[in-house]
Computed example of a mutant assay.
Amino acid sequence: MIVERALDARFESLRDAFAAHFERSDEFRDLGAGLVVYEAGRKVVDLHGGHQDADRRQPWTERTLANIWSASKGVMAVAIAQLVDAGQLDYAAPVARWWPEFAQAGKAAITLDQVMSHRAGLNGFAAPTSPEDLYDWERVTDRLASQAPLWPPGSTASYHGMTYGYLTGELVRRVTGLMPRDYISRHIAQPLQADLFLGVPPDRSDDVAQIVPPHDDLHPIALNAIAVGPTTNPTPDAAAANLPAWRQAQIPAVNIHASADGLARLYGALANAGQLGPTRLLSEAAIAAMVRPRGLPHDEMLGERQWAAGVALNRGGLYGQHDGAFGHSGWGGSFGCADPTSGRGIAYVVNRMGSALNGDPRARKLAQLATSL
């Protein structure tokens, strides 16, 4: 059953498409999901359905939190953009200005711009790294500070799947004195009144959806020597998202937990010139700086992808109908995006992960409808 907490009459076909995902006969059939759209700062769509758990005992509610995987990166992009907006960071400056240890092993010239656009040459770990290491902030950031680039920085873009969160998160810590968990809470989630957490609070543990790992990708992509970095050392394990240690950790590239409304509030502000209700998240100038294209529209791992400063620009219909849209998607199907043309911020969060590495068909369909109706 689909629960409609808000539905502007213009979006009935979007509701029908959302409902149809629970009836699919393939690996993209939804178990539980939420979909929220804000337009010009007003909520116009709020839908959820299905179950939080594979046994179908816990209904999905408006408070359900899902691990949004790499859609987390869009939240970190906003955190960095806020610090640029405040004059505390500078996209064009070397990372080592704020993190002196980062200058080791030939990295002195790597800029914040290169980190944000996946062009820093640090898309994996050189030293042996276990899944448990990912929970140790100091160990991982020290490791990244001391290692040499895996390929020439700035020469190309290749998705920094796991390392992006530590690189950006350590810059947040160096500049503000706050761990990324606390920065996100104070400067993004609380001002927006958004259910969005890097490390789930104990009193929200019952709201966390069980992640159902994806089937094997039916159309796997052959990765070259540059792109392979995020897929080994350690190998990503979707089932890890169900561990208490994962849910409580700070792995900012991949383990933010959000409700559909929580993530949509962030993108609703970005689509509305940076403001949602009384809260100004970013200035219009800061949004313009964040979405300026960096490099060519190609990623060694993801193929056609135009990176800006931590968000992907809309190419190939990834985020709907309009060229000005931008956002970030997560492994398995969750995504958030802003479409300034329509003034809409959109979020879709799921617990049964789809198998496609690039462009979940559920997400694409919803983004197309949400931006065109």
Rank of each mutant, 00 (worst) to 15 (best):
Glu4Lys: 09
Arg5Ala: 10
Glu12His: 15
Arg15Gly: 06
Ala19Pro: 08
Arg24Thr: 02
Ser25Tyr: 10
Glu27Asn: 15
Gly41Asn: 01
Val44Pro: 05
Gln52Cys: 12
Thr61Pro: 04
Asn67Cys: 07
Ser70Cys: 02
Ala71Val: 04
Val75His: 10
Met76Glu: 01
Met76Gly: 08
Gly87His: 11
Ala92Met: 15
Ala92Glu: 15
Lys107Ser: 05
Val115His: 09
Gly121Arg: 14
Phe125Ser: 08
Phe125Asp: 03
Thr141Tyr: 11
Ala145Cys: 12
Gln147Asn: 06
Trp151Lys: 10
Pro152Cys: 07
Pro153Trp: 03
Tyr164Glu: 02
Glu170Trp: 01
Leu171Gln: 11
Tyr183Gly: 08
Ala189Gly: 13
Pro201Gln: 04
Asp203Gln: 09
Thr231His: 14
Thr232Met: 14
Asn233Pro: 01
Pro234Arg: 00
Ala238Gly: 13
Ile251Asn: 13
Ile256Gln: 12
Ala258Pro: 01
Ala264Met: 06
Ala264Tyr: 07
Gly268Asp: 12
Ala271Gly: 03
Gly274Met: 00
Ala288Ile: 00
Val291Met: 09
Leu296Glu: 15
Pro297Gly: 02
Asp299Thr: 06
Val311Ala: 02
Leu318Ile: 10
Gly324Thr: 06
Gly333His: 03
Asp339Arg: 05
Ser342Asn: 11
Met353Lys: 07
Gly354His: 10
Asn358Ala: 14
Ala367Val: 08
Leu369Met: 00
Ser372His: 13
